[in-house]
Design a protein around this nucleic acid. Structure first.
Length: 260
DNA sequence: CCCTATGTTCCCAA
DNA sequence: CTTGGGAACATAGG
């Protein structure tokens, strides 16, 4: 269930392995994926990421776009016999095979011409001018947490990192986006960079499903301050971490460090 | 049986 | 137009 740091981890690992390689063939094992044609003999030019989307850029200005949604995984195998459960798509190289595995079958794969840029929001893992966030939030009465998770505004932040970013910034997740002050947007901008950078360094957060390209867990679960910590003591002030729901998603916060 | 789940999209109602 | 809620997608785990 990858968010930006998990997808970035996969991008880095794939970049080391498949750039310069040539696709021998592809195979779709789940018709829900749809037809993926015309990739054989194409060379991998680069592996890129935008928000939670991963792009394998091929020669001929074609790109393969992956979105892993909730339970999608990418796994690299040099074993020619291996066929794991829930295997949905395979991309074969001379050096090994790239698997898309997904029990819930929500993940998507598509092929398109390289240039058409998606209209989605700017990537979360870059320097954000607080004024841009403030402008975008003007008149928005929705909770600031929903605002941070809106992929059309900021691409890449999901439920775990939204909770962690707001904790670091000291802002209650239920606060209306339009009521967040200029100083608070500055703290949010700083927290986005800091939290996402640390999570990328940790190769993501493994509470249950997340594994990297080689099946390894991430480490950021050992560093979270609020996510999944209901009824535990806040690492800063000792208050009891609370859980509520925003947009149907579990939302964790410290009532003292993140006063409304 | 119940509830929850790191995502997205769609419909409906206020 | 904005927003939230609920359902849908399909499955595993506590």
């Amino acid at each position: 269930m990858p968010e930006l740091p998990e997808v970035e981890t996969l991008r880095r690992q794939l970049n080391e392995i498949i750039v310069g390689g040539t696709i021998i063939c592809t195979r779709v094992l789940d018709q829900r994926i749809g037809n993926i044609d015309g990739l054989s003999k194409r060379k991998v030019m680069s592996v890129e990421r935008h928000g939670k989307r991963l792009k394998i850029v091929l020669d001929g200005d074609i790109e393969v776009l992956f979105h892993l949604r909730m339970t999608g995984r990418l796994y690299w195998s040099a074993d020619n016999e291996l066929q794991p459960p829930h295997l949905r798509f395979v991309m074969t190289f001379s050096s090994g095979r790239l698997f898309l595995i997904d029990p819930r079958r929500f993940a998507t794969v598509s092929v398109r011409a390289r240039e058409n840029q998606c209209l989605a929001g700017r990537d979360a893992w870059m320097r954000w001018d607080p004024a841009v966030l403030e402008d975008a939030s003007r008149g928005r009465k929705r909770p600031v947490k929903s605002f941070l998770m809106d992929q059309d505004v900021i691409a890449g932040i999901g439920n775990i990192y939204a909770c962690e970013i707001l904790f670091r910034a000291g802002i209650h997740p239920c606060r209306k986006a339009c009521d967040v002050s200029q100083a608070q947007w500055s703290r949010i901008a700083e927290s986005m960079t800091a939290v996402l950078s640390e999570a990328v360094s940790c190769r993501g957060t493994t509470f249950s499903d997340w594994r990297d390209l080689f099946g390894n867990k991430g480490e950021y679960q050992n560093r979270v301050h609020v996510y999944g910590r209901k009824d535990q003591a806040c690492r800063h002030c000792g208050s009891t971490i609370q859980r509520t729901a925003i947009g149907g998603r579990g939302t964790f916060f410290c009532p003292h460090c993140q006063a409304l």
